[in-house]
Amino acid sequence: MARMVTTRNKVISTAAAWLVGFLIFFPILWMVLASFKTELEAFAIPPSFLFFHWTTENYVTVQERSDYFHHALNSIIIAGGSTLIAMLIAIPAAWSMAFSPTKRTKDVLLWMLSTKMMPPVGVLVPIYLIYRTFGLLDTRSGLIFILCLGNLPIVIWMLFTYFKEIPKDILEAARMDGATIGRELIYVLTPMAVPGLASTLLLNLILAWNEAFWTLNLSTLEAAPLTVFIASYSSPEGLFWAKLSAASTLAIAPILVLGWFSQRQLVRGLTFGAVK
């Protein structure tokens, strides 16, 4: 018997979905609201939800005290640069593993992924010393390098699974149709791989943008991205909830906007193969 979907069930599940969505979104909403409160209101109990004295003074103070645009530019360069380099390395790597695998391919993949199982703090000291020796501390290139290495296993793994999904038959059909390797790549493989490439790129961008361990430990000012900018509001003089919220809102805004516009692409890429 076909599953009956009554109106009541529909209403209940829609409401439940909205509730879950709201719960997940709530911290971000709360942060944005807090950024428009005064410091006093920000931790008032009971908290005021919408009826408080709206103010933008936090944003003004934040921009006065530290240069948002300097950090934002660093974030763009570091996240963008590390993503780009990671993609350039990962595409051929995943490609060869997907299309001409050997007996050891699975092992290599697992080994790469296993590097992500080690807590980064375990290698903080040696990396810090190496960076100091080579003058990489607080440089953009140093951060690009470490973030690129950190995300590479995930990027390769994702691309590998996408490439694997491309039916071999289609590539062989192109070969029978007289396509050379180069043309097979341009006309057949790349168009089919685009959704996978795009979502990998986006995910990697988001991961790099929000990466806090290495950026906090290896940069102070010159190369410091937005993560450092946020962190600077959370310690020395005690917590300033409203200003911290304003800084965080500013920091996640670009990536939130990017994510919003690309969500269809992102979801399609992440569920690629599951739906077919």
Binding site: P167, D169, E172, A174, R175, M176, D177, A179, T180, V188
Partner: peptide, 16 residues
């Protein structure tokens, strides 16, 4: 294969 002058129809169709 491209130079053998043969064409192939696959079981899975293998359309682009």
């Amino acid at each position: 294969p491209a130079k053998r002058g043969l064409s192939m129809v696959f079981q899975s169709y293998a359309l682009y």
